[in-house]
């Protein structure tokens, strides 16, 4: 199952053997959505790198590295989610089925909001080392 999914990412010939080809503008719209997710992932990776490279050391040991790693992992996960969602949407359009639903945007939004709140708290209690 997982193997088949990953194979579809790389070899969409299998997807192209199913259903009929949709209007290319739909496919291009799907591609732009994919690219928007990729840029979101890149932004989080950039944020993680900026935390690691520019933020001064915090009072709690390794907190800075922890924040950076969480942002970087999230950025990489968004990239993989993006290609998976792109492939599934492409398949759904070919088969004239509803686009696949996803909880990912909601989960990501909540995770980012909580993370931002946590950072504000850290700054408010003076987490920076003097």
């Amino acid at each position: 199952m997982i193997f088949r999914t990953v194979r579809q990412w790389f070899d969409p010939r299998e997807v192209r053997s199913e259903g009929t080809r949709p209007d290319y503008r739909y496919s291009l719209a799907n591609e732009r959505t994919f690219l928007a997710w990729i840029r979101t992932g890149l932004a989080l990776i950039g944020g993680g790198l900026a935390v690691a490279g520019f933020l001064p050391q915090l009072r709690v040991t390794h907190l800075r590295e922890g924040i950076a790693v969480v942002l970087l992992v999230l950025g990489g996960a968004i990239g993989l989610h993006a290609v998976d969602h792109w492939a599934r949407s492409e398949r759904a359009m070919r088969l004239d089925q509803p686009l696949p639903p996803s909880r990912f945007p909601a989960v990501l939004a909540i995770a980012l909001a909580l993370g931002a709140l946590l950072l504000v708290l850290i700054l408010a209690v003076g987490g920076m080392r003097e």
Binding site: I38, I45, V69, L72, G79, L80
Partner: peptide
Amino acid sequence: WSPAGMALGIAGFAVLGI
């Protein structure tokens, strides 16, 4: 395969960043 290549590249940059 362009989307898959991009996604793998992004994941690779995440690993490199870590």
